[in-house]
Amino acid sequence: MSSPRHIGIVGGGIIGSSTAFWTARLARERSLPVDITLFEGSSVAAGASGKAGGLLALDWHGPSTASLAALSYRLHSELAAEYGGADRWGYRRLDTLSVSADLSSSSSSAKLSSRSKKLKGAELFPWLNKDVLTASEVLGNQDTTSQVHPEQFTRAMVEEAEKLGVKVVYGSVEGAQARADGGCDLSVSPRDSSQDRTTVPVTDVVVAAGPWTGKILSKLGLDKQAGRAKAIRGSRAHSIVLKTAPGRELPAQALFTSIKEVGGRHAEPEVYNRPDGTSYICGPTDTSALPTLASSVSTESSAIDLLISQAARLAPDYLSTDNGQYSATVERRQACYLPVGSGDPVIGKIAQGAYVASGHSCWGICNGPGTGYVMAELLLDGKVKSADIDDLSP
C-alpha cells in the first residue's frame, strides 16, 4: 500500500472501542499502515456500554451468535489476564442463578417461611430474604458465566487503543462527502459547541453507534445499502447501583428474578453483584423517544423507585436503603437505550468502504471483544476467520 488507510469508527461504546482496539493491534502485528480515528458525540461509554450489567455468558446464545459469543468469551478472559482486568474493570467468574419471589402484600409471612424451608438450594442465597423466595435454579457456574464493569472495561479498551495510535475525536458525525479516490470526507460537529465543524478524510467508515446507528447511516447517505441495520432502534432500560454498608459483602452471583408484585403484577429485575461492593439492578425496557445524544438520556423516578424497593425486599439486610447502620446507598440512578433491531446483531460490509456493527441488544458487552475482532479481520483481510457470522450480515 503506497499510503495508509484511514478508518473512521463512529461510536465510543464497547463495539466501537473494541473494533478500534483490535484493528489497531492486528495492523501493528502485521506492520500494516493503517490510521484509525474513533468518533464519539458525548463521552466514551456514555450510553448502554456505561450503564449495562456486564454479564458474560459462554453458552446462552442461539445458533447465529454462538460462534461469536464463544470467541468473545475467550477474548474477555485473555484480555483480563493480559491487561489486569480483575483490577482495572472488575473481571471475575461468578455463579448465575434464577430465583422466584413473592413480594405481594397479600401473602402471609408464615406461608412464605414454610415454603422457603423446602426451597432447593436455599443455602446458595445467604444474602437474600428466604421468607419471600419460592423457587430457584442454577443457570450458570464459574466455568460458563463471568462479569465485567462495563464502563471501566470500555474505557480501558479505548485507553489501550490510544496506546496503539488510535485517535479519539469527541464530536458527532453529521454527514459525508464522497471523494474521487473512493474515500469520503466526514463532517464532524465538535462536542465543544464553541468550535467550528471540521472535516475528517477517511478511506473507510464503520458505524457502531448502538441505537443511533440508523440515524448515522441516514446522515452518511447509506440508507439503501444498510439492509437490516436500518431497523436498529433504541429501547430504554432503567437501572440503579447500590453500595452495601461496610461488612456486608455480597457473593459473586448474578440473579435473574421472577417476582410477584403487589396487585398481582409481575416483574423480572436482574441483579449483578460486583467485586467493588456494589450491586447493579436493572428493570424492564420501554419505548420512549431516543434523544440526540447519549448524555441526554432521562430517567423516570417511578421506575427507579420501584427498583430500589424491589432490591430492599429481596435483600433487606444488604440492599435496603433504610436499614440503620447497615443501610445501602444509591450510587447511581440511570437509564440507557439498548440497540435493538430485527433480532440478531448486524455485522458486516454494506458498501465499498462502509461497514456496520450494531444491534446487540443486551449482549453488547458480552460479545463486544469478539465483534471488534471479526470487524478487524473484515477490515484488514476482507474476510472473517475467527467466528461464523454468516447469519449476522446486513
Rank of each mutant, 00 (worst) to 15 (best):
A69H: 03
D102P: 11
S104G: 15
H61Q: 05
A86G: 10
R88C: 09
S108L: 06
Y83E: 00
S104M: 14
R115I: 06
K117I: 10
V99D: 04
S104W: 14
E78R: 15
R115A: 04
L68M: 15
W89D: 03
S113C: 11
L94R: 00
L58I: 01
S116Y: 00
S108N: 02
L97N: 10
L97P: 04
L58Y: 08
K111Y: 00
L94N: 01
A110F: 08
S98F: 14
P63V: 05
A101S: 08
S116E: 04
A81F: 00
S98R: 12
G85V: 04
L71R: 03
L68D: 04
S106P: 14
L119K: 10
L97W: 13
L112I: 08
A110S: 10
D95Q: 04
E82M: 11
A69M: 09
L79Y: 01
A81H: 09
G85S: 01
A80F: 02
S113T: 13
A66P: 07
A70Y: 10
A69S: 13
S64T: 11
S105T: 09
G62D: 15
D87P: 10
G85K: 02
S108T: 01
L56A: 00
H76K: 12
S64P: 11
Y83S: 01
L56N: 00
L112G: 00
K111N: 05
D102L: 10
A80G: 05
A110E: 14
S108M: 07
L75Y: 08
D87R: 10
T65S: 12
L75D: 01
R92V: 03
R88W: 07
S67Q: 05
L103S: 10
D95T: 08
T96V: 09
K111S: 01
A69F: 06
S109I: 12
L68E: 04
A66Y: 09
L103T: 11
K111Q: 02
S67N: 05
D95R: 00
S116K: 03
D95I: 04
S72E: 06
T65N: 13
H61K: 07
R115S: 10
